[in-house]
């Protein structure tokens, strides 16, 4: 049960490839592997503490205002992340820009708070947060790596392509984000077909 709780976010219910949740940050910041990883870690942090807070107060929040309460909780943790990034990693904070505050409306976080943390006990909610967050994070990392590799010939700034490689600049542009993600989701569907 415990193991499944974590693993489901990795594959079966992967937020990016299977549920298609949280698409704005997924597509916007994955121009490089580094940005993708930074966004993934920020989401893990916010998801973990939001699910912790939501599951702790689930009994005292009136049903009608729960969404508003969850949103304020999430916004608080996002503000913490934003201030932390600005102070410690100014370059990353600049790269991610307004997409850090946009984590507030990332549907994965509100979705997991409402669908899982508000109905389950503390330990399961925390495992759910870690699993879903990690699933989201590796999705961003893969997407960012592919786009950086094809669009600039690097991964994490290290040159990987041979010298004669002509970068496909379109991969770093918005259009490339849609195309790469579209093909990745199709690939996932193909893998699922093989399994059955």
């Amino acid at each position: 049960m415990k193991k499944q709780q974590i693993l489901k976010g990795f594959w079966e219910q992967n937020p990016i490839f299977r549920q298609l949740l949280g698409m704005c940050p997924t597509l916007a910041v994955t121009t490089t592997a580094e940005n993708g990883l930074a966004m993934g870690l920020a989401v893990i942090f916010v998801l973990f503490f939001s699910e912790l807070a939501v599951t702790s107060i689930k009994k005292i929040v009136p049903h009608q205002v729960r969404i508003a309460v969850y949103t304020v909780i999430i916004a608080t943790f996002v503000t913490i992340v934003d201030i932390f990034l600005k102070a410690q990693f100014p370059q990353i904070s600049k790269n991610l820009g307004p997409y850090v505050p946009l984590i507030i409306v990332n549907c994965i976080i509100l979705g997991r708070c409402e669908a899982f943390a508000s109905k389950n006990k503390l330990s399961n909610s925390l495992l759910d947060a870690l699993g879903m967050g990690a699933g989201f994070c590796w999705g961003l990392l893969v997407l960012g790596s592919i786009r950086e590799l094809l669009g600039a010939g690097n991964i994490f700034g290290f040159k990987l392509m041979p010298a004669g490689f002509n970068p496909l600049v379109v991969m770093i542009l918005p259009a490339g984000a849609f195309l790469v993600l579209g093909f990745l989701v199709a690939l996932m569907n193909r893998v699922e077909q093989w399994k059955t």
Partner: peptide, 22 residues
Amino acid sequence: PKVFKGAPLTLITAGILALIFM
């Protein structure tokens, strides 16, 4: 193709649309 049905096709269409808007 079956694997492209639904989300993948929509995303790729959006990608082509983004190219056009460029």
